[in-house]
């Protein structure tokens, strides 16, 4: 099987890779690019732990072949984290208690950022809808929703 020549812009950096066409975007991020913030919770698009932004939109990176992303721009949790600090969404999740085991957190962060990019002033309903694809088994979501809503408040 011939390798596929993949060009991606990941977190602002142009990357050229030779990959097995079977690899998903998540495989490439974790195993080829050493970006392990995106987590594999189900590998079937049902849990959202692998959420990244593809050309600015939140997607489950386990459900797309990396080859299909050729020429695209990918942003992962590593890409939105400022050096030595936290993105407002990360900060809110930390401070409001929206993180327990943390396995879902990077995906939750990226889904929330995707949501806020589209809708900077979401209602609670918007947040609950927008994060419905991100399962969390620890928190009951209440503090996560509060955290995302507080980001909106602090911006306003």
């Amino acid at each position: 099987m011939p390798k596929f020549h993949l060009s991606l812009t990941v977190n602002g950096e142009a990357r050229e890779l030779l990959i097995d066409p079977r690899r998903t975007l998540l495989d490439v991020l974790r195993d080829e690019l050493d970006l392990r913030g995106a987590h594999r919770g189900c590998d079937s698009g049902d849990c959202g732990a692998c959420t990244v932004l593809l050309d600015g939109k939140p997607i489950t990176s386990c459900m797309i072949l990396a080859a299909d992303c050729d020429g695209s721009t990918v942003t992962t949790v590593e890409g939105i984290t400022p050096a030595g600090g936290l993105h407002p969404v990360q900060k809110a999740l930390v401070e409001k208690g929206g993180i327990q085991c943390g396995f879902c957190t990077p995906g939750m962060v990226m889904a929330a950022i995707g949501l806020l990019n589209e809708n900077p002033n979401p209602t609670e309903h918007d947040v609950r809808e927008g994060l419905a694809g991100n399962l969390c088994r620890c928190t009951g979501y209440k503090k996560i929703v509060e955290a995302v809503l507080s980001v909106e408040e602090s911006k306003a």
């Binding site: 939140p58 997607i59 694809g133």
Partner: peptide, 9 residues
């Protein structure tokens, strides 16, 4: 249908 992440794909 599904989630926003899936609907974007």
């Amino acid at each position: 249908m599904a989630s926003v992440q899936i609907r974007n794909l």
